[in-house]
Design a protein around this nucleic acid. Sequence first.
DNA 1: AATCTATTTAACCGATAAGATAATTAACCT
DNA 2: AGGTTAATTATCTTATCGGTTAAATAGATT
Lengths: 111, 111
Amino acid sequence: MTQDHLSVTLSALADPTRRAILTRLSAGEASVNELAEPFAMTLPAISKHLKVLERAGLISRSRTAQWRPCRLEAAPMRGVADWIENYRRFWDGSLDHLDDYLSEIQKGEKS
Amino acid sequence: MTQDHLSVTLSALADPTRRAILTRLSAGEASVNELAEPFAMTLPAISKHLKVLERAGLISRSRTAQWRPCRLEAAPMRGVADWIENYRRFWDGSLDHLDDYLSEIQKGEKS
DNA sequence: AATCTATTTAACCGATAAGATAATTAACCT
DNA sequence: AGGTTAATTATCTTATCGGTTAAATAGATT
């Protein structure tokens, strides 16, 4: 089954190692070895995680000599933020204007 | 490995069927059969999806006769929204891109 | 040319996920 | 009691995931 963008993004984000990598990258570019350093995990494992993040469009990679520095590309997160925003009222607790929101919600995702 | 809340929530949300179920539930409670109806999928499959959502705390279930109506519980989404909010500046960009722009300008002025 | 460094690819493994079918539980209605 | 409806559990298959070790590629250095 060809996965939709939102599913690809969310499942990329569902792994704690990958989220930690993104957090690290929010402080700036980093090489694969730098990214791997904090984890009790082999390099190929990190390499795989990076490939998942790249496929999801959450990072991009350049080439400098033998290094392949990674950069955060947060754009796909916007889809997640937008989707989840439709549910904010359900945890924010102000159920007062429920009716106003219903039609908006129903315009949401139809797979 | 015991999964953290955020990972459990995100992987529950990573499936389009489950997201569609949540969207449906944002319009109000529904029975399992009602939830299953729009999908080309057997009932046990839906039942499994519901179990995943329940484990993630994204739905709760009551018992009325032979029906087990499901209700949306959006609370766990808050963790997702909070986490992702840290990245908004990277796609909203106004601040970031302004910084880039300003440093570009300064380089231009110096040369 | 030889070697060191950075990273990826290949091949494999165990665990989990998503689906199916068939059987089972639970509650309702004659 | 017997049958219908609602939903779950059990079992199985197939595919993907997250990790490993070992080998391969690519570029820099000596």
